[in-house]
Every structure is written in structure tokens, then in C-alpha cells.
Amino acid sequence: MMTEAVKEFLCYRCNLKIKYDYYGKKPPFAKSIAIGEECYVIKDPFTSDVGIINLGSHCSVCQRSVCASGDCSIFYCKRFCLQCVQENIEEFPIEIRQEIKDKSLRQTNR
């Protein structure tokens, strides 16, 4: 039995759980890519070519790990989980405020 620690990413909001390959800004398996935040990355499993998928990272406010889905977080210069966005909504540009409003509207409609 191998005793390799399982590195698993877990989104605190949607409970998405996926084993990740790398945490940081410069994944070693895609040399020309640099990411603008420390994040959880896997090799793109849907292609045999070079590629990555950014799973998510830590919310810059609450530091909890949150996935990259629009339902869980947004990226605007930094990563913010939607809960922190809601709590600090006044601190965001008008375009993002609108976007969040639309999003919650859509969700209640659903």
C-alpha cells in the first residue's frame, strides 16, 4: 500500500471534492501558464494535450477554500466567495453588484 497523502480540494459551499495535482500559481505541467492567484489546479483530464483546470482557491476575505464555479465565488483581482461578496457588496464596482443581483434573482426564480 502506498502511503501517499491524498490531496483533495473541497469547496465549502457546494462540497465539490476533487483530488488536485498542484497548489500555487505556476503549475509545473503547463509551463507557459501563470495564474493570478494561489489556487488548486488539476491537469486537464479531458484532453491528451497540455492543459489545466483551475478548481478554485481560498477566499481572500474569509480564507475558506471555494471552487471556481460562478455559484460559489467570483474573481475580481482576487478570489471572493459569494458569501463574502454579499457581506461586502458595497465595496465592489457597480457592474459586479448588478451581476450578483442578477445571479441571486435567477437563483430564486429557479
Binding site: 495564474i35 493570478g36 481572500s60 476575505v61 465595496e91 464596482p93
Partner: peptide, 21 residues
């Protein structure tokens, strides 16, 4: 803003990936 982000919206700020070429 107090969160350290520009209030003037710029959609390039939404992108967290860059490519070295």
C-alpha cells in the same frame, strides 16, 4: 475599495490566468 480592489470596473480584472509567450 477597502478590499483592495479598484472600483472602476475593468473586465480584464476578472481574469486570473495569463500566458507567457
Amino acid at each position: 475599495s477597502s478590499l483592495g480592489i479598484p472600483l472602476q470596473y475593468d473586465k480584464t480584472n476578472r481574469i486570473n490566468i495569463s500566458v507567457q509567450n
